[in-house]
């Protein structure tokens, strides 16, 4: 079915373009000097936020598939996850370059709680990104699924990483927190173990 295939390709491409938008905005702001007097800080923050938002978008795909029944959502999951990882990696580099200037690495990672949570999130992302290929999926078999549940730890750590930095107004991070909570609770409710225990298990 060529038409549905091309439709899937079109969807894939448009999601890819959307995922590029935060990066493109940054590049254009850079070229037009719209980043303000402390550009390093703006770049670091924007990259981190893009990584977090794309991670949440990735976590939305399974619930979207359940709700709409359309399997197409899952086809962009790996790509979105990898986009999130790319932004996170650039964010970490930007943090080293612009915020701490490659100094005091040890104390940054041992004494600043918000950085510790960011680090946890990123470190767990690395093996997930590395094992995202189809070949690795086949090789790891059942263990792949278990390993990739690590994404939930990534999401929660990343959220704490942001919340901890909110110095006085936590409104925005509470909103993200509710979204994340919804995405996690939905998975628990849809999980087969939960259904066995609480839905079909009730006689």
């Amino acid at each position: 079915m060529a038409s549905s295939e091309s439709r899937a390709l079109g969807f894939h491409l448009s999601i890819a373009v959307l995922a590029c938008v935060p990066g493109l905005i940054l590049v254009s702001d850079m070229l037009y000097s719209r980043l303000g007097p402390d550009p390093g800080e703006v770049v670091t923050k924007s990259l981190g936020m893009a990584a977090f938002q794309l991670l949440l978008a990735t976590l939305c795909l399974t619930p979207l598939r359940k709700l709409t029944g359309w399997p197409g959502w899952l086809r962009v999951r790996r790509m979105l996850g990898l986009f999130s990882f790319c932004y996170a990696a650039l964010h970490v580099l930007a943090f080293f370059q612009f915020i701490i200037g490659w100094q005091d690495l040890w104390s940054s990672f041992t004494r600043r709680p918000y950085i510790i949570f960011g680090l946890i999130a990123f470190v767990i992302m690395v093996p997930l990104a590395a094992t995202s290929s189809k070949a690795m999926m086949r090789r790891l078999g059942k263990r792949w699924k278990v390993l990739h549940r690590g994404v939930y730890i990534v999401a929660v750590s990343a959220w704490v990483h942001f919340l901890w930095q909110a110095r006085s107004d936590v409104g925005e991070m509470l909103a993200y927190g509710f979204l994340l909570l919804f995405l996690l609770v939905a998975r628990v409710i849809w999980s087969s173990a939960f259904k066995r225990r609480f839905v079909s298990g009730v006689q």
Binding site: P37, D38, G40, Q97, F98, R111, Q165
Partner: peptide, 19 residues
């Protein structure tokens, strides 16, 4: 400070490629 090292500072305006 628990959030920021206070040893150095970025004097603004700061550049992207030369902080």
């Amino acid at each position: 400070h628990p959030r920021w090292s206070q040893k150095r500072e970025r004097r603004l305006p700061s550049g992207l490629f030369s902080v």
